[in-house]
Design a protein around this nucleic acid. Structure first.
Lengths: 231, 231
DNA sequence: GTGTTAATTTCGGCT
DNA sequence: AGCCGAAGTTAACAC
């Protein structure tokens, strides 16, 4: 990895056009040729960048650029699309390179898959008498997160999200439409379960007769803990 | 901005838990206290990070950590939530700091908002006699990009996208369903306008009686230019 | 390879 | 300040 601190201006042309006026920034050139332009604020997102696969060429400034004080031009081109990033270097304050090697990668815990597992293990969270049929119940248009039965024995399809938004309601609606056309399964009711449910998603869901349930991840984990304590 | 190249392991606990095994990485500490952990590949997204506002404390390693070769521990805590990032430094290969100043920021051109503005200004692009009612017409499930009337005075809802895909057609369909249930508004027809329209999206839209219009951003800008020339 | 879905999404605009 | 929708989204996973 090469790290350059430089006064520069940057222009991107591709899916949109964007321009960065002259300022001091950090330029990161990764081993795969990708380039990141970072300022001293914002967030983890660079001001501008070029994703791999891409190639970088260092050019001499043309006459106009030289007159404006440009000492070097980096032309970064995407290998497959015609996206391009032009970095005009005015002054290099630092330029270093390091061999980082291949990263072993990130290990995650606590994402939607875990919510699904926990709710399946404690399906009674949805109400008394609920029983699990199966997780990832396959349909021709994709897997239903959880299929279960309510206290009266009626089939219930559950869609789980960390954050419940309109798209999740649409997804569940597609499953319900399909399953209710299958005489083997019908009638099937729907539950939209999420850690947070946006008002618009709730409105849409309830308009379609889908019940909304707010999940508490820590509470579900807590049930695990207290049950484990019994043994 | 401080840039450190170091062999380190990283643990994040907050909205989820995540762990990075020992490896050589780039650590970026921005002026607002935020921390980014980058590897020499991937994309513009760091392997791990802490968003501002947050504070960073450099601690001495405890006994166990010291036995594993840890020479320093950075504890990065989010100021408002209880998210925390623990960076265990084993070896520092480089440690530099630079004053970058405040960045003037990115200037973008060609995003959906511009398309919407341009189409609203030149609504006759959709056909002779079209007139604008209003942009961002609010409904209980979200704003319709443009509401207008065609030459015959019939209300038309327009959904605008840079890239027209199935999800955009679904969105417009939801608005049309809702608006056509409102006797004050019905009947409402639909137009799906985008710079590019995917064949599947076009098929779905036309199957639902929604007209597809391909927008030419440069042409819409050109109308602006030529009209300005008249003055 | 193509399509679908999640993400510690981030970011901007508006109420 | 909260809510909503777009993003040069990127990335993982299924088919």
């Amino acid at each position: 990895m090469r790290v350059v601190i430089a006064r520069c201006s940057v222009d991107y042309d591709g899916r949109l056009s964007a321009h960065l006026p002259l300022a001091t920034r950090l330029l990161m050139i990764k081993a795969d040729g990708s380039v990141l332009v970072h300022s001293d604020g914002g967030s983890y997102k660079p001001l501008n960048w070029m994703s791999p696969p891409c190639s970088i060429a260092e050019l001499a400034p043309d006459e106009d650029e030289a007159a404006e004080g440009v000492t070097a031009v980096w032309l970064v081109r995407h290998t497959k699309t015609d996206d391009r990033l032009r970095v005009r270097i005015h002054e290099v304050l630092s330029d270093t390179a390091h061999d980082l090697g291949v990263d072993p990668g990130l290990v995650k815990d606590g994402v939607e898959a875990h919510l699904q597992q926990l709710l399946a293990e404690h399906i009674h969270t949805l109400g008394a008498g609920y029983s699990l049929v199966r997780r990832e119940f396959m349909t021709p248009i994709g897997p239903v997160d959880i299929l279960c039965r309510d206290g009266a024995g009626v089939t219930v399809a559950v869609e789980i999200k960390r954050r419940g938004e309109i798209e999740g309601v649409e997804q569940l609606t597609r499953y319900l439409d399909l399953m209710n056309r299958d005489p083997q399964l019908a009638p099937v009711t729907g539950v939209f379960a999420a850690q947070q449910i946006k008002p618009q998603a709730r409105t849409l869901a309830e308009d379609r007769g889908i019940r909304c349930v707010v999940l508490d991840y820590d509470e579900l984990k807590g049930i695990d803990t207290s049950e484990h304590r019994l043994f």
